[in-house]
């Protein structure tokens, strides 16, 4: 069971109040882009063992999307942050580095 804090409304709730939206920070390749890029955008996901960035929606609460960093092995949540960013903010990266010094970075 994950305990998440929504950065939009500030509620800390268990994961049944939220909905997972897959991997975060995907770069979109639309029509006209290279086939390999498009295929990778559509289908290739990192699926790491360890630090992972995900999209979540506070579906039973304020309804907003946000992003989260967590560990897929221990289910430890490193932090949540607003979705209007293309890479994790420095404080989230610092928190992950503190807990997982061997992490190779985003």
């Amino acid at each position: 069971m994950l305990l998440l804090t929504c950065p939009c409304c500030g509620v800390t709730a268990e994961e049944t109040e939220f909905a997972n939206g897959g991997e975060a920070h995907l770069k979109r390749f639309g029509p006209g882009s290279d086939d390999a890029d498009y295929e990778a955008y559509m289908f290739a996901r990192k699926n790491p063992r360890g630090v992972h960035f995900e999209r979540w929606r506070h579906i039973y609460g304020c309804g907003k999307w946000f992003l989260m960093a967590r560990c897929t092995m221990t289910l430890e949540v490193f932090g949540t942050y607003r979705a209007q960013t293309s890479e994790p903010p420095a404080e989230i990266v610092a928190k992950i580095k503190a807990r997982r010094p061997e992490w190779e970075g985003f």
Binding site: E17, I59, Y60
Partner: peptide, 10 residues
């Protein structure tokens, strides 16, 4: 105020 779920609905 808290928006949440009641049993299985919003």
């Amino acid at each position: 105020l808290r928006r949440t779920r009641a049993a299985q609905v919003a």
